[in-house]
Design a protein around this nucleic acid. Structure first.
Ligand SMILES: [Mn+2]
Ligand SMILES: [Mn+2]
Ligand SMILES: [Zn+2]
Ligand SMILES: [Zn+2]
Lengths: 137, 137
DNA sequence: GAAATGTCTGCAACCCGGTTGCAAAGTCAG
DNA sequence: CTGACTTTGCAACCGGGTTGCAGACATTTC
């Protein structure tokens, strides 16, 4: 699986340093999107800014996307295979107000309404909030 | 128009203090949603926390809604007449990446996809990003 | 009207996520 | 091995949001 990780990194032209392997590995394992803080806690002993820059690099290469779920911190999740983070590749996200986890709803692509001509759409962020299946009694 | 303002406040059971009149007035005048910081700057000499608490009060009474546009600060805009901020009352928002203004797209109500039964939907925040008509050359 | 009660405001300080400058450590080609 | 470049760790900073507390203000009660 190490090679699996490296493959993904190299596919996006990212040099596979140990740090990057670890971060990507964590993001792939987790079912929900992770915040910088959460990543930091997962491996006690790595600096915040290093993880931060790793995430920046990943984003710049469309390996992960950041989710603005309004919880106060950004969450990160691995992009799907050929994602370029353009509007037609985006999906809904779900923030659970109970467990505070944010999930990618990959099966629910977003649809942006037809706005008046003079609006130029570049990106979007659609978040649904509520109680997730795990938390629903 | 003072009485106009007071009417709106009292309609939502908010005691009309001078501070609240001023803040509501500003929010009504502005075509785009305002951040705490922007409000603060508009009247030099009022404390941030006072405005902050005013906004909290307004929100609690469904007079305004907060918009998480991912710009780093929350933006606030006056709700429409009978808004209760429930999902079926919500609309899209548009963040201009050039002027950084955020607009309520009142004519574009959001539609939340039918999620698997076990998801309980409580709220939503749909933001479209791009270039606004004013900024489009 | 004066005192007592409750609400609103200003100030200062804090918390926390995100970001940056800089120097040390690591990588790699020549 | 040497020098050029990249990655990492540390420390400090910034800015939005939030809170405790005390003084100002308004409202009620006597
Ligand atoms: Mn996602
Ligand atoms: Mn709005
Ligand atoms: Zn949950
Ligand atoms: Zn604009």
């Amino acid at each position: 699986m190490q090679s699996e990780i490296n493959k993904k990194l190299e596919a996006k032209q990212i040099k596979p340093t140990p740090m990057r392997q670890l971060v990507l590995n964590l993001l792939l394992q987790e079912p929900s999107a992770l915040s910088l803080r959460e990543l930091e806690e997962k491996f006690d002993k790595v600096d915040k800014s290093t993880i931060y820059r790793t995430l920046q690099t990943f984003q710049a290469h469309y390996l992960i996307h950041a989710i603005e779920d309004g919880s106060g911190s950004l969450r990160y999740a691995v992009c799907e295979e050929n994602c370029t983070c353009e509007p037609h590749h985006l999906h809904f996200h779900f923030l659970c107000l109970k467990c505070q986890h944010t999930y990618c709803l990959h099966d629910y692509p977003i649809q942006i309404p037809q706005l008046p001509e003079k609006y130029q759409v570049i990106s979007a962020n659609f978040v649904i909030k509520g109680i997730c299946p795990n938390c629903k009694a």
